[in-house]
Write a protein that binds this DNA or RNA. Sequence first.
DNA 1: GCAGATTTCGGAAACGATTCCGATGATCGG
DNA 2: CCGATCATCGGAATCGTTTCCGAAATCTGC
Lengths: 341, 341
Amino acid sequence: MKHITIKDIAKKLNVSVSTVSRAFNDTFDVSKKTRDRVLKVAKEMGYYPNPIAKRLHQQKSFQIGIVVPEFINDFFPQVIMGIQKVVQQAGYQLLIMQSNECYETEIANVKKLEENMVDGLIISLSQETKNIDYYNQLYDKGIPMVFFNRVNDTINAPKVVFNDFKWAYFAVEHLIKQGCKNIVHLAGYKHLSLSKERVKGYEKAMNKFHLNFGKQHIIETGFTREEGEKAMQHLLKQGLQPDGIFAANDPVALGSMKALKQAGIKVPKEVKIIGFSEALWTDMVEPALSSVSQPAKVIGEESAILLLKQLKGAPMKKTMISLDGHLVVRASSMKDGLLGD
Amino acid sequence: MKHITIKDIAKKLNVSVSTVSRAFNDTFDVSKKTRDRVLKVAKEMGYYPNPIAKRLHQQKSFQIGIVVPEFINDFFPQVIMGIQKVVQQAGYQLLIMQSNECYETEIANVKKLEENMVDGLIISLSQETKNIDYYNQLYDKGIPMVFFNRVNDTINAPKVVFNDFKWAYFAVEHLIKQGCKNIVHLAGYKHLSLSKERVKGYEKAMNKFHLNFGKQHIIETGFTREEGEKAMQHLLKQGLQPDGIFAANDPVALGSMKALKQAGIKVPKEVKIIGFSEALWTDMVEPALSSVSQPAKVIGEESAILLLKQLKGAPMKKTMISLDGHLVVRASSMKDGLLGD
DNA sequence: GCAGATTTCGGAAACGATTCCGATGATCGG
DNA sequence: CCGATCATCGGAATCGTTTCCGAAATCTGC
């Protein structure tokens, strides 16, 4: 029942505990003969070092705190998988918390992680979070940190983001090439930098093809299906029917699709739709939803690598890694969609 | 930069460290006056106790290990949320690992958690896992454990499961009441107890209404959409067209739905379908998929409560908690589905 | 063969908390 | 007023490991 310690081995071999410790840590000042003896007996007794004692002595918890807005949708779990894969090899553990898109719980989570003495933090901001003073204070105190995806312009710590601007541009360009001329952008929340970037990408594509009709074609919706549905219904009620929709994410795209169907408007024949973020169910709906795919796992891996560098003491300037994805074109945005009705 | 310890407070107040410790732990042998003094200064200095030192002394890691097959789909993340909610209040942390449905990594994960000296384990077995000797050894050694959902008959530790038998029965009964007479069950994997239970529920309902045509109506499929699609295609090629399908889970149900549509067979008019587990996208497909909803979060909470009881030293007999869900009836299984085509 | 360098190891301090033991001073009853 | 109880606190051990310091023991060169 009781755990075998370094002392038990020392007693059995009539050596000191320091010798046993040296044998395990492979230091220079222990003879090969005694080291082999120690290792052999330790294996026989089923010894493995107590990580808690090690942590206390080395003044390091070997734990990394993670705060994400949620993890019931598939994006964040995939990011976390990427993080886990990288940090596990370096001997670190993950403490995962979720803010539920709420600023107060987000900060409370970070404080709880601080009390647990995590060695570093990886964070994705909640929708609500606008004030990031606390984070900048932490970072300036020297605590290793990385932010991903939900970031903010004023953050000092390094960031890993998706290239929202570029891929929003490609998404809209794709719609235009499929024949759309009157494209509406159902945007998320204005204050998030990812929304800003996507709006910029939308505008650039529209300008390039001389299709820009101004800000009334950009509608702030939020990120849920219900909000997408309502926005579309509102638009139709006003008598405005676009022929293309670029949605902030896949649920919003789906919501707008439902509203169109209910109004008897055919997708993709009359209106073409493309979403964002590549949810797991995009090819299960009908017509199958085109979308922009983000490399969630890679985002996690890159974030973890950046954090590990900081943990090794590497000086980290205000860096930002911007990752690329790819368009997943399906029936909902095709000129002559085979599956469309 | 450096962390404030109990010694710093002791020095500042000219008392011993033991007094400071007593003040925090609220023991009887410290005067209220000095306790208040200590607490006040501690707050001023921003002190909080080092959890690692506490863990070392108390010979407890305050960590709980979790092993699940995967967490990119929504079921397991929801369970984990339930666990987290309960254990966090009791001061425990979660170390989450995934087996990727592979027996070897599952065992490797458990061993890694042992080395990290977790105080207890919560496990959901992989598809592959048949041999559970290692788990029974661990449990007999006295390590607190709870299994959930993916369990096995020979496990000694307490279990928390969904009442698959009962709700499979209700699902099939629902199809029968909607007019189905020739119902096929697309089952998962035979060796899993949840599949066995669902088969039993299917059979009981069929027997009750004198509709049982034997084992050829039960087809082992696995758990993916592709497998559901193939199974259905195979069935149609044989000239066998059921009028109802009870699927092992939602992806399999969706796969069969696709195969039916491609063959020009109308859902739910000609064939009615019900799935299992209530994936997030069930109301996004068309026709919306009926399903059996499992209380994932409650499963997590109950598992955590059972584990905490063991951690407090409560003797735990071979118990099993069986939870109920509810039917979510949508268009895919309705006699006169409004949304059906 | 001996001074000095080198190898190898034991003892003890340290990490930050808890807790047992004993000592001091105050208080109380008779 | 004095022995005994009680409240309050300091000192030290403890948890399991690492690491510094110093001391043997062996080895090197001359």
